[in-house]
Amino acid sequence: MKKYILKRIGMSVATLLVIVLVLFILMQLLPGSPFNDERLSIEQQQVLMSKYGLDDSVPVQFFRYVKNMLTGDFGKSYTISKNTDVSLLLQNRLPTSLLLGGLSILLGSVAGLLLGVAAALKHNSLLDSMATFFSVIGVSIPSYVFALGLSYLFGFQLSWLPMLYNADDGLRAFALPAVALSMTVMATVARFTRTEMIEVLNSDYMQLVESKGVSGIQLIFKHALRNASISIITILGPLVVSLMTGSLVVEKIFSIPGIGQLMVQAIQSNDYNVILALAFVYSALYIFVMLAVDILYGVLDPRIRLAKEGANG
């Protein structure tokens, strides 16, 4: 197992490097330069391009970038926060986004699991229909509609929770955005749990466990849910991706200083270094989640672990 994990980590690092290369090439295809402001003359643009080393050949730029990146230097922002180290921007904004994303996953998964289990146990009942209804609403309405609705109701009408992000509010500041973001997670997890649980509950294996006299909570959570969760874990990866997209919008509505807002701005203003750095951060995050999923998968389902160990030496 240890060997497998080590190998898996090595592979992830290699993947990340390939991604950086691909991103770097993609970036060269982007039309426009960061310095096409109306007020700059062609000569001044040239000066700026050479100041930031953008007139060097692509391989030169690439190796310089990777070299600097290893020391934590992601270059400077050209337009969003002029002349500022991108690493400084990340340092300020990444923790906020991670916290928000983490809270949303946690909130959504717990709610989704409960909803899914309830629906599966009361299959074809009113409760099941209600659960289906909730989860359908969750995936059918974009998170920004939720966000504004929540903000209007709890922030403006009832004044229970802050409408705008303020670092002084601590976790309270995250309440509304996290709920808005977690709707998709909840819905997806609930759907998936329901399907998986129904399948597991009907399996011979469960009948065996049941006949052994294992009962109640233990039966559901230890045996049934454990089996169902193997498949649920696989959707964690895509969920993280959908959270990234959702956060771009929700961060804007609640004025949260996170990386989602930064990303949209960077793309719209051709801030190459910020796009590259953020794309890298998103990629690293995703790959980390996939790595965790793979390892968890192995822990939870011994058959897969064995198969993998066999396959990977």
């Binding site: 991604i19 982007l30 039309p31 997209t245 771009l248 793309i267 998103y282 990629s283 995703y286 996939m290």
Partner: peptide, 27 residues
Amino acid sequence: VDNIMQRSVEVLNGIPNLVVVTLLIIV
């Protein structure tokens, strides 16, 4: 086979959709 295919997916998926899609549409 699995290894190669999964690594390619990881590379493709590891790049945020937004970047890929935006790029494509701008081009």
